[in-house]
Amino acid sequence: MALRDVKPTRSELINLKRKIKLSERGYNILKMKRDGLILEFFKVLGEAKNSRGDLMEKYEHASEMIALLNTLEGTINIKAAAFSVKATPTIDLKSKNIMGVVVPEIEAASVRKGITDRGYGLIGTSPALDETATAYEELVESVIRSAEIETTMKKLLDEIESTKRRVNALEFKVIPELSEARDFIKMRLDEMEREELFRLKKIKARTSV
């Protein structure tokens, strides 16, 4: 706000004072929000680290199992067994609110199945197939869990960033400018008052002569 645009009036001063008060209140609230979000973020970060580690572990295990199954059964038998899987996992997407940030809550159904619910028969298949199927079911579960945690983390980060920008704008731009304008108006009003006083004295002196 350029000072030349400021009207040095009493009403403008009152207006500015009100704005400064509001900005300072907003600044304090946003600062608290930012700190709260950072705390939440660190909580989620811990979970994200664990879930990413778990995901990598599950992925490596699943890769090892499919390599082993390929070796033991060949892709022809694996593909034939895969034909027996008809049900696809369903994902229920909900949302929850963390300090005003809407984050996803993912619930998956029918990912993990029992050996008798997968669709292939037990008599014509091998135990390696069970373990590989279990490894991949666990991997899918882990992917879903990681997706939820990492999306939450990303959304929190975005919100922290924008809150930080707002706090900084209030702290270093809006509030100082408003304060400067307030001081300018105050100074200008004082000056006008002094001028008025001086003028009055002058008039009084002239009339008394």
Binding site: S84, K86, Y120, G121, L122, I123, G124
Partner: peptide, 12 residues
């Protein structure tokens, strides 16, 4: 749409 039982019975 579940052929596991059929498969088991055929092998038996």
């Amino acid at each position: 749409g579940w052929f596991a039982r059929l498969e088991n019975e055929l092998y038996k």
